[in-house]
Each structure stands twice: as C-alpha cells, then as structure tokens.
Amino acid sequence: MEKFTRITSVAAPLPEADIDTDIIFPARFLLLLDKAGLGKHLFFERRYRPDGTRTDFALNQPAFEGAKILVADANFGSGSSREQAVWALADFGIKCVIAPSFGEIFYNNCFKNGVLPIVVSGARHDEVMAAARSGGELTIDLEAETIRLPNGPEFGFEIDPYRRRALLLGLDEIGSILADDADDIARFEARQRVESPWLQLDDGRLDRLFPQDEEHTR
C-alpha cells in the first residue's frame, strides 16, 4: 500500500451532507473488474450532465484542479460497502477526506488504500470548509497529526494509533497477520473444532451439497 506522510494541496469543498457511496461511485460502473483507472467515474452524475457536458461541481473547477484533499460534510461515504468509492477517489488523486462523520465501511476502506479520512466537526469544520473554499493550500501532516490552514492556524486531529502507523509505513496488513498471527489463528481453529464443531464445514458437507454434477440445475 502507498504510504501517507504529509501532503500540501488545495482542498475541494463539498458542503453537502449524506454523500453516499452510490453518489461517489455509481453502481453501473461496479461491473468493471479492476481497481485501476476508476477515477474517471468518480462522482459521475455530479460532474457530468446527461448530455455529457461538465457541471460546475467543485472537482471540475480550475481552482481545485489537482486537489488531493476533499472537505465534505456529515455522513460522507454512507451506504454501500463498495471499495470502488475509495479506489476512484485515490485514482482521481484524492489522498485525504475531511468530514464531521463518515460511513463506517467507507472509513475502514480508506485505510486499506493509503487514503486518510479525518474527522473534524463543529466550528473547526466550518473553518476548514471556509479555507477550502478560499482556494488556499492546506497541509495535512500525519506524523504530527495536524492540519494547517492556508492563513496559518494549525490544529491537531485524532486517529487510531495502529491505523496511523499502517498509513505511515504503507503496511501490508494481510502480510503482517500471516507473518505474526498464523499460529494464533491455527490454535483458535483447533480449539473451536472441539468446542463448537458445527461452525466448521471442512468435513466435506459443503462439497456434498454442491456437487459438480449439476444435479440442481434446471
């Protein structure tokens, strides 16, 4: 995974609550099989009119071209679990989303893709939104856990220490579980096989239920 340490960029303002993942990445593009190149579908219905012309959506405006930061409103990324929403943001160049609250699955998905979601609410959020609208550059420093606004003020944000470290290092979480925890997982499975054998289906029951002979196919 790509590392996240520190970015300085203009921030695109998206002052609207409840931007769900269907708005971020419309479902019809979910038929695509790859992670790469999804940025062109990002916010598709917001960026393009039905006739294909571009709207004045923030990410279409020259002032916010190349923005690596998005300042959104409450409940950003609610709804569907589609990780395509994060892949599309990342592919478009967005590395950080600041909002008062997030959909939980979206929030989790960000950390798997080098994207930093930051919770900022209340008057602080108003300040950040105003800074984004001004078109000035914000600096996000994950090491220091700070956001610096264009006119100078700097303040801290909170983030889970493990997630912070994972982003800073570009950690391969699956690799580290396999390397460090495989024995614990094996011990757990052995114990479960004794205590709750019905939870494990390795006895071939599944294979018998779904034989390859098309018995259940009309």
């Binding site: 699955i105 989790n108 798997k112 699956i174 925890d181 997982i185």
Partner: peptide
Amino acid sequence: SHTSTHGAFGAIAFGIGASECECVFATQA
C-alpha cells in the same frame, strides 16, 4: 453492506470492503 441481515440469527455479521474480503480469504481473520 447488507450483511447485517444475518444478525437476525444472533450472528455477528457485517459488510466489508474488497480488501477485507482478501484478508479473510488469506487469514480467516
């Protein structure tokens, strides 16, 4: 995300992204 449905049986059931699906494939955790 609608994996929460299965909680009706008293299971902990939740929706995950594709990266976590990959993690479950590889580690079962």
